[in-house]
Computed example of a mutant assay.
Amino acid sequence: MDLALQRNGRTFLTYSASYCGTADYKLGMLEYRGGNPLAASSWTKIPSPIFQRSNANGVHGPGHHSFFTSPDGTETWIACHANSSASQGTTRTTRGQKISWNADGPPNLGVPVPTSKVLASPSDETSGAGT
């Protein structure tokens, strides 16, 4: 599992932002632009959060995350912690959902889905790949 995503020669580094005990815990992202990866000037900060609370879906404070690929390598998924209520503090549950990619290259994490939503399994999960 990673916090970095690479696709089509581009590298994106994601991070959790704010305090995990609040409903406003969220994810931010940097994009590597070349040069020395230890130099701040080699990175561009994406100005807005890339994954954050969804009051409509009852998802608060999504963060503390990681990414994984489906067994057949065709899908990228996020696993994270979040709350179902704005007042739960650090009593979070683990959630996961498939992400997509924007036409201009960066990952699109979408909107956190509610725990009541039934999701399709990662592609080729039942093949036993990786076991």
Rank of each mutant, 00 (worst) to 15 (best):
M1E: 12
M1Y: 13
D2K: 12
D2T: 11
A4H: 10
Q6I: 07
R7Y: 07
F12R: 02
S16C: 07
S16A: 13
A17P: 02
S18M: 13
Y19F: 12
A23W: 15
D24V: 12
D24M: 05
K26M: 04
L27H: 01
L27I: 11
G28F: 05
M29Q: 14
M29Y: 12
Y32E: 07
Y32Q: 07
R33V: 09
G34K: 08
N36Y: 05
P37F: 05
L38G: 11
L38Y: 12
A39F: 02
A40E: 06
S41A: 15
S42Q: 02
T44W: 12
K45D: 11
P49W: 01
P49C: 03
Q52Y: 05
Q52P: 00
R53P: 01
R53L: 11
R53I: 00
R53G: 02
S54N: 05
N55S: 10
N57A: 02
G58I: 04
G58F: 01
H60N: 11
H60G: 00
H64V: 13
F67Q: 12
T69E: 14
S70N: 00
P71Q: 09
P71H: 06
D72A: 08
D72W: 05
D72L: 07
E75W: 04
T76Q: 11
I78F: 08
A79L: 07
C80A: 03
H81V: 03
H81Q: 06
N83Y: 00
S87N: 15
Q88P: 02
G89H: 00
R92F: 00
G96P: 02
Q97G: 09
K98D: 09
K98E: 12
K98S: 09
I99G: 09
I99D: 06
S100F: 04
S100W: 01
N102W: 12
N102V: 06
N102E: 14
A103I: 10
A103P: 06
G105I: 05
L109C: 11
L109W: 11
G110R: 12
V113D: 06
V113C: 04
P114Y: 01
S116A: 15
S116I: 08
K117Y: 10
V118D: 03
V118Q: 14
P122S: 03
D124V: 00
E125M: 12
E125C: 15
T126S: 15
T126Q: 10
S127W: 10
G128S: 08
G128Y: 08
G128A: 08
A129Q: 13
G130F: 08
G130K: 10
